[in-house]
Simulated assay, not measured.
Amino acid sequence: MSHSEVPAGAGVRKGSWRRRLAVGAAVFSGLCVLGVLGTLLMVMYWLHNPTESQKNCCWEQNVTPAWTANTMGFQVPETATDRRAGLHTNVQYDVALLAFTVSTAETDRFLQPLLREGAQMARNRHPEKQGYTRSDGFSHFGLPEPETFTEGMRITSVCPREAKSLESEALRLCAKIHAHEFQPGTTRIYLWAGSDAPLPKPPN
């Protein structure tokens, strides 16, 4: 057989091999994408539906409201009652939490120096369902998660030196703030601050 002659069907076999390779590559890529999406969905599910062991995991001992307020850089009103605090640590980030109750008038005096000029607190227009918990949330110390409330709820976030005030200068972490007037004239303030860098641990 001369070099110019090509066996019958050779082109078909060659094209078929390439098609099978392309199909195999596409299937493999699809499986990889599905695997990543499945992992993300599982992580999101665990964050929104933590198990009992996850709820109790990774909370530091000896955490006090005074220590937490100092770590976050907040000046808690002296009139505050029902003070609760926690420090949650994991390999990705640390979270400091602080909650307390004050009069609504005292709430405004506490919040105003922390807000940028002209900033307004938002309403919770997309609440979580009742019973919602998270592994690094306020339910750890017996409070409903603030994301579940709409009535009387105001939300904002603050960072150090955003406002021209001594209170803003004193902040050490960016924080999410929920202020919930759960009864007329009385508000519970929730402060949640996450940090990619490890936060200091309370003394034993």
Rank of each mutant, 00 (worst) to 15 (best):
residue 72 M to F: 03
residue 153 M to D: 10
residue 139 S to E: 13
residue 41 L to C: 11
residue 24 G to K: 13
residue 138 F to I: 00
residue 151 E to I: 03
residue 28 F to E: 06
residue 45 Y to V: 00
residue 17 W to R: 14
residue 139 S to H: 07
residue 38 G to K: 07
residue 82 D to T: 01
residue 123 R to I: 00
residue 108 D to V: 07
residue 85 A to D: 05
residue 38 G to C: 09
residue 14 K to M: 14
residue 194 G to T: 04
residue 170 A to C: 04
residue 76 V to H: 00
residue 104 T to Y: 05
residue 151 E to Y: 06
residue 120 Q to R: 14
residue 199 L to E: 00
residue 163 A to Q: 10
residue 118 G to V: 08
residue 134 R to H: 08
residue 123 R to V: 01
residue 30 G to E: 07
residue 98 L to Y: 03
residue 84 R to C: 03
residue 74 F to H: 03
residue 130 Q to M: 11
residue 132 Y to Q: 04
residue 192 W to G: 02
residue 82 D to P: 04
residue 106 E to K: 11
residue 1 M to P: 01
residue 32 C to L: 15
residue 64 T to W: 06
residue 30 G to N: 14
residue 93 Y to C: 04
residue 173 L to R: 00
residue 99 A to D: 03
residue 87 L to W: 04
residue 100 F to I: 03
residue 125 R to Q: 13
residue 126 H to G: 02
residue 108 D to R: 12
residue 88 H to G: 02
residue 5 E to W: 12
residue 36 V to S: 07
residue 28 F to Q: 05
residue 36 V to L: 14
residue 200 P to Q: 14
residue 107 T to L: 04
residue 90 N to A: 06
residue 101 T to M: 04
residue 130 Q to Y: 08
residue 193 A to M: 09
residue 111 L to W: 05
residue 88 H to S: 01
residue 137 G to H: 00
residue 198 P to E: 04
residue 39 T to N: 11
residue 110 F to Y: 10
residue 56 N to H: 14
residue 69 A to S: 12
residue 197 A to H: 08
residue 98 L to E: 02
residue 3 H to M: 02
residue 39 T to E: 10
residue 59 W to Y: 15
residue 20 R to T: 12
residue 161 R to A: 09
residue 11 G to V: 05
residue 106 E to N: 08
residue 68 T to G: 06
residue 107 T to S: 14
residue 108 D to H: 12
residue 167 E to L: 06
residue 200 P to R: 14
residue 94 D to L: 03
residue 33 V to L: 15
residue 100 F to S: 01
residue 77 P to I: 09
residue 69 A to G: 08
residue 37 L to Y: 09
residue 33 V to T: 12
residue 137 G to E: 00
residue 25 A to T: 13
residue 145 E to V: 06
residue 13 R to M: 10
residue 162 E to A: 09
residue 159 C to T: 07
residue 141 F to N: 03
residue 92 Q to F: 12
residue 6 V to W: 10
residue 73 G to P: 02
residue 34 L to C: 12
residue 106 E to D: 15
residue 170 A to S: 12
residue 56 N to L: 14
residue 65 P to T: 04
residue 168 S to Y: 06
residue 6 V to D: 13
residue 67 W to H: 08
residue 73 G to D: 05
